[in-house]
Design a protein around this nucleic acid. Structure first.
Lengths: 127, 127, 127, 127
DNA sequence: GTGGTCTAGACCACG
DNA sequence: GTGGTCTAGACCACT
């Protein structure tokens, strides 16, 4: 269910975080469902337990999961905060991207067109 | 003309690289024009010469400038192909971004609005 | 396994790069195998860590290894494509070289002889 | 007649040297013919006079030209030494190339084949 | 522990 | 003057 790409330069704990967020948003992980234990995930993925720990505790800080010491890590009931998170992230990426587009003098129309075409295209996913 | 933001967490040499790329692609630096010498930029920006050196030599590997030891660093002639590459890269980033936006059910209008506002915004740097 | 020649005028980081490439392409280093850490190699060879770092990171840009900060430096998986590139490069060099040889009217036999002798020679390093 | 490529990483004085050697070998410069003066070439090519000077004096050391102070630089009568020079250079390049080919485990037959085909091919030059 | 970045200062070859 | 390489030593984030 959860995977990491060691060749990818984004920190593993970040990969874990976005991975889990996606699972929750897609409904694969329901509210109040228990996530794998730190130890279990650590051996399954061949990752240092500290790394898993960090991902979980940051997700907790962001309100996406809640941790009950001794019991485990559970999906938060309030998925709204997750959506908020993602929206903020996307907004930032969009800002950076458009800044670059402007630097290249790419006309606004072209960008708009591209967006229209992607939005109307059939979904087919890909990590 | 060239500035760096020490507070920014992106490496200085990366800031330099994108800074110079923008100057070239926007036409502020013409093909075959000479860039400031490593030492000159280093004192002007208060940065170690090695850092400038790294930026220049990476830009050379990417074909954006050419360096002649003993003479200096010059803007590459075939700026066109560079622009093409950049456009492709931006297009890919846009595709990925919109896929995520769609997954969050962000309405197209919102994206469009955001884009409009960024495109009409006054340039004031940042990264 | 890895050695450098300080008397040689080719930069140390270049020596390291070609050294490692040969180890990988010859199969002495298997895909996904971990290379010595920057610091370890640095003390083993009596070289500054920065120099090793540079070799590794350039090899990564060329797709020969992949680096995960905090984990280490690993041999890339698709060694095949690397080999292909190298073969093309060698073929080009050979073409240029023979053009020059022809211009000097060096007889084909002489070239062939030379090649035979080198191919049958025992490996003993050198750059 | 003589040109230099500033984008090429080989030192300009080396470019000048091989350039002149080729002109002599091809017969464009006859024995005892006078080469352009240091000053003249310097302004024609936009190169520092020191650089021209260095090329000339190294060519003199190698017996390819002779310099008579106050009169100028002249093509040597003995073109044999030039050929010798070139042969040595080619031999070195061949050695390096084959070492690389061996490292890639390229079979000897393949190299031989390639050489045959190039040697039998029609000449069409190229710098 | 790992790699990544940066500074300071030195020495070299080239122009 | 130019860029190119290297050392020494520091600090950071990630595992």
């Amino acid at each position: 269910m959860i995977t990491v790409d060691f060749k990818n330069r984004t920190p593993i704990y970040e990969q874990l975080k976005s991975n889990i967020q996606k699972l929750i948003l897609s409904g694969a992980l329901a509210p109040n469902e228990q996530l794998p234990s730190v130890r279990a995930l650590s051996v399954e993925l061949g990752i240092n337990p500290n790394t898993i720990q960090r991902a979980y505790s940051e997700l907790e800080k962001e309100g996406i999961v809640y941790i009950t010491p001794g019991r485990g890590c559970f999906v938060s009931e309030d998925t709204a905060s997750i959506t908020e998170n993602k929206k903020k992230e996307i907004s930032e990426r969009l800002t950076l991207l458009l800044r670059d587009a402007k630097a290249l003098a790419i006309p606004l129309d072209l960008v708009m067109e591209k967006i229209q075409s992607i939005y109307s295209e059939k979904e087919e996913d890909g990590q």
